[in-house]
Nucleic acid binder design. Structure first.
Lengths: 162, 162
DNA sequence: AGATAACTTGTACATATGTACAACATGTGG
DNA sequence: CCACATGTTGTACATATGTACAAGTTATCT
């Protein structure tokens, strides 16, 4: 529901009806709305992290780090656009409720762990974040080649196979 | 108010009280809430665009394109962090209400117009977007040097003076 | 089985919100 | 001055929301 309507679309009533339980239960399990939101976001983060990390690993193993990530980005901005928008809505909820920041941010080391050096990883994170957000906001898809061109100059390890 | 509480923090009543006018006036001037939101966002975009474009122009003229942009980013993520967060809240409102997308996006050509080639400009936009968003979400400031290191490889025109 | 804790349900209440609207004021043409 | 458009105000109403809570049900332990 946060993915659909933003953080303010998550209400006790909508959560209860979505789950098919009476309203009272939501206040029994979540003391107040803040906790309901935090729980939901932490759950969503777990889902997203698992799925994204797995897909990135697949693509990187197949295409090498640069081209693999480029495929990942192209995929998300293309066929995966709906999911991408949802993820960003969830992720960016914390922008409006700072207390939720820890509930949406990831331990970043995990994603690229051992797949490239920290310096390249930092650059990749920045570029991918920028490409994805712009793709969402400008309503465009990006190609594998475009992303490759952006990432390549920051890849110190050029043994990545194509 | 959108900058403070997000798009759902903008209500007829809060807008009226902020402006010191009675509630009824807001429904007289804005037929419904959608139009109130769109008007507000378009106004905010104008303010931000003018201010940011002017500051970028200043810094780029003084330091050259790469270092100038790096200063701009460092400034926003440091002393300008509060404003940066507000701008992102306003900008990203459209993520939750797609009809507002046109009200928050900028004509991008304007910002770097004539200051670098289109290819570099596109890369700069991506990188700056990524750095700024990550700075906001991870609650960190970034240094001029870090941004320079990210931007430099994408600068085809190396006559930019340092 | 009986007691005690955990869970579930329905409902109530104070507050906030979008929107409508009738009354009032103020300007603006002739 | 007078009709009339424009602008302004206060208020009303239906709906949504967070939260509390008393009453019921089910599990768990001895």
């Amino acid at each position: 529901m946060i993915a659909r309507d933003g953080i303010s679309g998550l209400t006790h009533r909508s959560a209860a009806s979505e789950a098919g339980v009476p309203l009272g239960l939501t206040t029994y399990y979540f003391s107040d709305k803040g906790e309901l939101a935090r729980s939901s976001l932490e759950y969503a983060r777990g889902q997203y992290l698992a799925r994204d990390a797995a897909r990135i690993a697949e693509l990187v193993d197949e295409f090498g780090i640069v081209t693999g990530l480029a495929h990942y980005v192209a995929e998300l901005t293309g066929s995966g656009r709906g999911r991408l928008i949802q993820e960003y809505r969830v992720y960016l909820s914390a922008l409006y409720v700072p207390a939720l920041r820890d509930a949406v941010t990831w331990p970043e080391d995990r994603v690229f762990d051992g797949r490239t050096d920290p310096r390249s990883a930092a650059a990749f994170h920045v570029i991918i974040e920028g490409v994805l957000l712009r793709a969402v906001m400008l309503d465009i898809a990006v190609s594998v080649e475009e992303v490759e061109a952006l990432l390549r100059p920051h890849c110190s390890d050029d043994s990545s196979r194509g």
